[in-house]
Design a protein around this nucleic acid. Structure first.
Lengths: 200, 200
DNA sequence: CAACCATACGGAGCGGTGTTCCGTTTAGCA
DNA sequence: TGCTAAACGGAACACCGCTCCGTATGGTTG
């Protein structure tokens, strides 16, 4: 399932060269084109547009990325990874676990709301997007869970909420945030996180 | 714009009979068929399915309900109306405004999560759904605003959140709730409402 | 009762999108 | 240089929303 890492190692020998040179070039081209189109027209842009932008045919795009989810994952993998890695760091550097949780969620929200339509597509259970959903969950839920646990142990927040549920809720709150200036997802997420606090 | 009330008056003379008998029959048939299909396949079911279920052609359905939004509104109008009317009643009968707000939101959430995909379509800015969005907002936001104001005046909650924003957030939290048993929208909405409270 | 026509109906057809399939091209190797 | 597996391109198919227009019919009028 999608190991489209660009393997841009400067290191020693190439282990098991599998792809042809033009294929790799096209993959890179497609990634760039997709990123550009996603910014311009959102992640739901027609596949044809991306293919056209990259100057390749339909077949090529589908061979490299069988589903749109694979393409989206490949484009944003770095940022998701960065977000995941920021979790432990925040936990270590913040005053309280709840503060760390808040900051980490802010990071996640910032990522989501700046990707046109990504939040909206995240939950969509259309065939293929399950992969996307699963990737985000696999990568980020454990991080969230650690922050959550820490806050629970510190007695700061209620303990009856799973990380999956929280992540899902935050993701949902971000839907449509970029297309409506009257809706401030960040603030609402803030309210949600505040709602986790135990009455002291 | 869509006065599809069934005018089922038992009263005196018929004021300006406008539609042909078969047209009215079809409208009723379509409403029933749509309701049934919505339950079975969600509100995003293909228009053709609804037409087929009702035993009419595509033209007929589009003449009666120019956009899918009109159809959805017509099907759920009664329930939305009931929800809207429950607002003031709850405010009068509950101990505190915040409690009333919570209960009213619960009503709204119950309505949303039992309609397959309705929440998801509510925010969709595809052409036509603006009407749906507008209807829900027009009808429910004022009710929410009154509850919110009352709670603010009572000093129970923060005052920097608009009713539109809250409604939108709650609606978003309900997206996909019906298709995933691991996600309890009601609980998350509860957390959100709890987050409104001022630290006391 | 018959003729008429505005109203309503039905569904073929158009435009757009996702996805597949296969004939053609080409990179990489001997 | 010649060969073959890998990769490419885009035509073609399936599905969906929506429109348009020829046909059928309810209701009214003479």
């Amino acid at each position: 399932m999608g190991d489209s890492d660009s393997d841009s190692s400067g290191g020693a020998g190439r282990p098991a060269r599998s792809k042809r040179a033009d294929a790799r070039r096209n993959e890179k081209t497609l990634l760039d084109a997709a990123a550009a189109v996603f910014v311009e027209s959102g992640v739901e842009a027609p596949v044809r547009d991306i293919a056209a932008r990259a100057g390749v045919g339909m077949g090529t795009i589908y061979r490299h990325f069988p589903t749109r989810a694979d393409l989206i994952i490949a484009v944003y993998r770095h940022q998701v990874e960065a977000c995941a890695e920021a979790g432990p760091a925040l936990l270590a550097s913040s005053e309280t676990p709840h503060a760390a949780l808040g900051r980490w969620i802010d990071l996640f929200v910032d990522f989501l709301v700046t990707k046109h339509g990504l939040a909206g597509v995240l939950h969509s259970d259309e065939a293929g997007f399950t992969t996307l959903h699963a990737y985000f969950l696999d990568r980020l839920v454990p991080v969230c869970a650690r922050l959550l646990d820490a806050a629970v142990e510190a007695g700061e927040i209620r303990s009856d909420l799973e990380a999956v549920e929280l992540m899902r809720g935050v993701g949902n709150l971000c839907i449509g945030a970029e297309s409506d200036p009257r809706y401030d997802a960040r603030r609402l997420v803030g309210v949600l996180i505040a709602g986790l606090r135990l009455p002291s």
